[in-house]
Amino acid sequence: MLSIEWMLLYILLGLFVGFMAGLLGVGGGGILVPLLVSIFSNQGVNADNVVHLALGTTMACTIISSIASIRAHAAQGTVVWKVVYGMTPGIMVGTLLITRIAANVNSAYIAIFFALFMALVAGQMFLNWRPKASRKPAKFRGLFLAGTGIGSVSALAAVGGGFLTVTYLSYQNVEMKKAIGTSSAIGFPIAIAGTVGYMMSGWSQTVSVPYTLGFIYVPAFLIIAIASSIAAPYGVRCSHRLPETHLKKIFAVLSLVLSIKMLFSVV
């Protein structure tokens, strides 16, 4: 399953995803999940597990990228830690619960959900839609429930956490810069819970697949995580020179096309 050709492909994928994440300030899950599905399929992974393995591996890669993102936003003072602490328990519950359930769900249904969610994200990027702030910041119960919902969606769509968190916090009268910074911090517990959840739920189903820990393909995780962390700073530098609005639309189209391709390949 593992050869030098695949390792080189993982390096290129990590460099691309890391650069795009730094350039646009968005997670690379929309690109990473569909491409990993295609790569794993060509490597001979069982079709019943291929989407789960792509999601679990993407979640693991996100752990590394989210740490760098948290440090950058925390240094600028744009992380509302009270919100992070309030949402984290719900995120852990929602993510762990859904990853356990997802292990018994057909890959085709998860692919359909992923593609539909990417269509929603792409539409938001094109329209640059933001909800009108109309409520006071939620208390612990509201943050817990919001975290549970965001964690649940993120378990099935590795791009869901940032998109939903920014939207929710904007609605809760949180300033946009702080909403984005807080969202980056919330990405860490989502990634941790998603990684642990997919590792546990897939433990017995990937015993015959080499180099796996549950639904996490370790070589892809290590190579992509390292490569993306190297490329991300270069993306950040270029972000000040290139038209972000047009690039986000291109990114949205690319993510949507790849998701649809993944959908047809799985179904």
Rank of each mutant, 00 (worst) to 15 (best):
A111W: 08
V17Y: 00
V159P: 05
R135C: 15
A185V: 10
R237V: 07
A60C: 06
G25Y: 00
T165S: 08
R237H: 11
S229Q: 13
L9V: 06
A252L: 05
I11N: 04
F114Y: 10
I31D: 02
A47K: 14
V37M: 09
G149S: 05
M199Y: 05
G94C: 06
G142S: 11
G235C: 00
I260W: 02
N46R: 12
N46H: 09
I110Q: 11
A146Y: 12
G22M: 00
S41I: 11
V51E: 10
L242F: 12
M118E: 08
G235A: 00
V266F: 01
A111F: 07
I67H: 04
I226F: 12
A108W: 09
A133C: 12
Y234Q: 03
S170H: 11
L9K: 10
S201E: 02
A133T: 11
K82S: 15
T148I: 11
P233W: 04
G235R: 00
Y85L: 14
W81L: 14
L35N: 04
S65C: 06
G14P: 06
G181N: 09
F16W: 14
L15N: 09
I112K: 08
N128G: 10
Q205F: 15
G29K: 01
R71V: 14
L145G: 08
A122R: 05
Q172E: 15
V83L: 15
L254F: 11
I190R: 02
G86D: 04
W203F: 14
Y168W: 15
M176P: 10
V45W: 07
L36H: 05
M262Y: 08
P89F: 11
Y217E: 01
K82A: 15
S154C: 06
T245C: 10
G151R: 01
H246A: 14
L32E: 01
M200R: 12
V209D: 07
V196M: 06
Q124C: 07
W6R: 01
T167W: 13
G94I: 07
G235W: 00
G162V: 00
A146V: 13
Y171G: 13
A193Y: 01
L12I: 11
V93A: 12
M199N: 03
A111T: 07
